[in-house]
Amino acid sequence: MTRSELVAEGLSVTFPGGMRALRDVNLRVGEREIVGLVGESGSGKSTLGRVIVGLQHSYSGTLTFAGEALDPRRTTKQRGAIQMVFQDPYASLDPRMTVWQLLDELLSVHRIGSGREDRRHRCEDLMRRVHLPVAMLDSRPVGMSGGQRQRVAIARALAVEPRFLVADEPTAALDVSVQARIINLFADLREEMGLSQLFISHNLAVVRSLCDRVAVIYRGEIVEMAATDAIFEAPQHDYTRQLLAAAPDLP
């Protein structure tokens, strides 16, 4: 087993009103590892992602990243280290800004790059990394396809040079044909940059084709966690079996 990059221990989240979104969740993601988090709506999978990237401040339990304990309030550097890609590529990008402005703003805030020229080069590299034409730097998200927007969102997550990526249903709003390329992109990011990832999805087939290990979450609890092959070939928990039986597949 590789060294642990992210360790969550005993995470619990209770929303105002008493709804328990997470109950005593333990999760470990190793260096260069992609872990799938599978569950249905309301299972708490997105909440777990939000705790990890620092969007959900009130929780109990501990989070350790690269050997360092993470507080609910994070430094800019800690924020930069763990980035997130969201489900809806239409909502998560400021429609008034060009791709260059979106990326450049992050580089400036995180003091990455020396001068405008250097930042421009970095942005061009980012575009190539997510397989978008460099010329698209000067266009706005309006008018782009869903797949292109999601690539821009990924470029933005990569801009601050993170070590860890949380992807929350990044292909749920996309066509299957577009989804394939985005999944391949996540796989390449691990191969080329060693980026560890938590890949949140309700789609078992997608998780199977990308992840090393899979955690199944049900009503705020992780009910089963194992290597991908084990989950798909010998599911232990009833709920996992139910999910597998429900998932559509080609003959």
């Binding site: 990237v53 969007l55 980035q83 489900q87 998560s92 400021d94 997550a157 601050v160």
Partner: peptide, 11 residues
């Protein structure tokens, strides 16, 4: 929407 979340995560 995710609009604000994306900005927060960006630091």
């Amino acid at each position: 929407t995710n609009f604000m979340d994306a900005l927060h995560v960006g630091g």
